[in-house]
């Protein structure tokens, strides 16, 4: 029974997801087969979504699963399949590149980890302890923030009740949200155009070539 009293599921799940995320990220790095890389990347990003859930960011975690894993990566796999011919399936970097990049990467990693543990506020939990679950649920607040209402910045009275007035200058993330939506639309149309145009021209040149031939 003592082992159960000492078990911390939060630490367990953190460790599990962290190892999955980092392990499969390394697998992406060290595999040369492009399709396997895509598969490992999926698992790594999925494990990161698990980390987001653990950190209380449910909405971000689900967005990660929906857009990143379900959308972007499917797109990537499409690209991989459209360009996957035997000679490009596994393009290996030269060994000299490996050595240089591993040295550089190791240094960078060391620096980042050292700085991650370098700040006292990051290393320790706060004195007041974590918030209760009800306060930690953020999906609604995130949605409100995207539509321009920062519920976490409501003015509060002495008893902690939220007052109605929001600061008038604070429109939350409404403007970035609109901009990013339009941006996404433009980018998707542009990408579709970019991917189509060459095919058309090539088929046109091919047809003229065949006419000339």
């Amino acid at each position: 029974m003592t082992i159960w009293a000492a078990t911390d599921w939060y630490a367990f799940f953190f460790l599990l997801f962290a190892l999955l995320a980092c392990g499969f990220a390394a697998a992406v790095l060290f595999t040369s087969n492009i399709v396997r890389m895509a598969f490992y990347l999926t698992l790594s990003l999925g494990a990161t979504a698990g980390l987001f859930f653990l950190a209380g960011a449910e909405f971000v975690g689900v967005m990660q699963l929906m857009i990143y894993v379900g959308g972007t990566l499917v797109l990537l796999v499409f690209g991989v399949m459209l360009t996957a011919r035997a000679p490009f399936l596994s393009l290996r970097p030269r060994s000299g590149e490996w050595i240089v990049s591993l040295i550089a990467g190791g240094t960078l990693l060391f620096l980042l980890i050292a700085s991650a543990f370098g700040v006292r506020n990051w290393r320790t939990a706060s004195d007041s302890g974590p918030l209760p679950l009800a306060e930690a649920q953020t999906a609604t607040a995130v949605g409100a923030g995207l539509t321009g209402v920062r519920v976490d910045r409501l003015n509060r009275d002495a008893a902690g009740h939220a007052l109605s007035q929001l600061p008038h200058t604070d429109s939350g993330y409404l403007l970035p949200f609109v901009i990013v939506s339009v941006h996404l639309l433009v980018v998707l149309v542009g990408a579709a155009y970019l991917a189509r145009a060459k095919v058309r021209r090539r088929s046109a040149t091919e047809s003229t070539a065949s006419v000339e031939g």
Binding site: F14, S101, L112, I113, A116
Partner: peptide, 29 residues
């Protein structure tokens, strides 16, 4: 790991970041 803190998450972030940088640098595809 009795207490998971921000630092632990930062380490995961650092590993993912460095792997990403190395991927960008070494992959030829």
């Amino acid at each position: 790991l009795a207490q998971i803190t921000v630092s632990h998450y930062l380490v995961v972030g650092a590993v993912l970041f460095v792997t990403g940088v190395l991927c960008m640098a070494t992959k030829r595809n």
